[in-house]
Amino acid sequence: MIRRALLVAAREGRADRRQPDGLVAAATFVAALVLLESVVVGPQVARASSVAPALYWIALLFAAIVIAMRSFERELEDDAIDAVLALPGGRDALYAGKLIALLGTLAVVAVGGGVLEIALLDLDIALPGHLLLAAALGVVALPAVVILDVALTLRLRARAALVPVLALPVLVPQLVAATNATALALEGDPSGSLAWSGLLLAIALVYAVLGLTIVPTAIE
């Protein structure tokens, strides 16, 4: 099962390297949002520890949706998804593999967007280690729900609008936890940041298990 999921993820990664449009679109989106934020609210407000992390995670959330939708779009070209679904254990592997692949791509976007935000807004980081942990767990907590919702809306009309509508409310806890974990790491509250990071990890586990249990049968 893990071997097959990794095969799907590797296939995705390879295709992504040759056609990096999803990654590029997502990274550009995050960069544009960071710039926009500073322009709209002014750099002094934008760099506040209550504002910068919130914006960062909202940007990453939409980036995750963009990447996941592009990934399934590629799957629909030439009915490529049918070949995977018809393989023994293909459904589970597809869900898990897409999850792993999104995690990888999102991590790249997260690092790029994070560095950009820290540099542009000249953010003071009180606890770099905690910040790194919060960012890593935030990236881990998003994909399960995003892949789930993109898979549920596969081949439906208006899915570009439907995915955010379905995903955003479900991702409220992830957004709250990631934002607070990051903000507290910037401010220098180690135990607070760790507590939120722990919640992120718990949420990630809940949705990964739930997704693997019920989503594969719903992919068609």
Binding site: R11, R74, D78, A80, D82, L87, P88, G90
Partner: peptide, 23 residues
């Protein structure tokens, strides 16, 4: 199926190698 079901971005060899490895 009546469409080739090969994923774009991968070569024909990589597509077939994926299926073979999966099985």
């Amino acid at each position: 199926g009546h469409r080739p079901q090969l994923v774009h971005g991968l070569t024909a060899r990589e597509n077939l190698a994926f299926f073979a490895a999966f099985r």
